[in-house]
Computed example of a mutant assay.
Amino acid sequence: MAELEPARTLQRTRHGRVALDLGTARTRALTSSGAAIADRPSAVVAAPPIAGAADPVRPIRHGMVADPGACLRLVRLVLRDVQTAGDRSMEQVVVGVPVAASPSDRRAVRTAVSEAAGCGVTLVEEPLAAAVGVGLDVTGSRPFLLLDVGAGIVEAVAIRDGAISDAMAIQLGATTGAGLLPYVLDGVVDMTAALLRRLPAQLRAAARGNGLTVTGGGALQARLLNRLDTALRMPVSTPSEPQDATVRGLMRLCLRPALASGIAARGR
């Protein structure tokens, strides 16, 4: 019996770790005790309910917390989705935030998640988590580019030495079922090309060699990938299930707390 106790302790610890990706359109969560991703629209009913109001409240706008109270209710719902019977305590939540998030934006996320979960919260910038989620070596000295295309914000980043060394962002007012609107698509391509040009000359060739990785739900838009390939003249790739790259990366960081803490400490 005594020989089994360490395994039981490890299992309880693993159950207590949760990865949380608060998106403008959808919110995803994953626990280290299971492979299924909880995935629900980023919307809740008004509190208190408003008579005759049909539209739900959307607490996340441009990837940032726009309604703290509604965000708290959303986080509670998502955490309930991933909790299993008999698993009532959480040890740590690792949650993604945009690189463009201000200090007040980050405080709003931390406050909502810590109140809902009742445990420690680690913030990790979403493009960095997405890079971890697709298996890129974020700690290497050779730079690479990543474009994270969400429903409310698109961020292009350069990553090396475990940190985002440069970043640019476009906040989205609207998307369609077909993906980015034409004028936004032009802006995303121009932004990514500008980020590449901003790299120091001695790093640009290495970044081109590593190619551009595109994640987020917008990575499924073939027209965007084709435009990027033509404009950048460098390899452009997207992983399978790119919409889940961030939450999977956050979970990998849950299982490597030292790496997560180091990355979070370097965040803006």
Rank of each mutant, 00 (worst) to 15 (best):
R106Q: 14
A163T: 15
D148W: 14
L22N: 10
D39C: 12
L203A: 12
I60W: 11
A38L: 07
A174R: 15
S237T: 13
G173Q: 14
C254M: 06
I153T: 13
I60P: 07
R204Q: 13
A130M: 11
V247E: 09
G152R: 06
T215F: 12
L79W: 08
T122K: 08
I50D: 07
P56H: 12
A207F: 05
T24L: 09
A116K: 09
D148M: 05
A265T: 06
R198F: 00
Q171E: 14
G86P: 12
V214R: 05
P103F: 08
A151I: 10
A205C: 00
L224Q: 00
R266P: 00
Q243T: 05
P103N: 09
V45Q: 15
V149N: 03
Q92E: 08
P49F: 03
P103Q: 06
A19D: 05
C71V: 05
P59E: 12
A101Q: 04
R73H: 14
V236K: 04
T9D: 07
P257H: 01
R26I: 10
A36G: 01
Q221T: 02
P257M: 09
T122M: 11
T122I: 14
A178V: 02
L212V: 07
R76N: 09
L72G: 13
A36Q: 10
P257S: 06
L232H: 05
V132N: 03
A117Q: 07
Q171L: 06
R266Q: 15
T122C: 13
R198A: 13
A201G: 01
P239Y: 02
S237Q: 11
I263W: 08
A167S: 15
I170T: 09
P103G: 10
R106A: 13
D67C: 09
G63K: 07
L224K: 00
R266G: 12
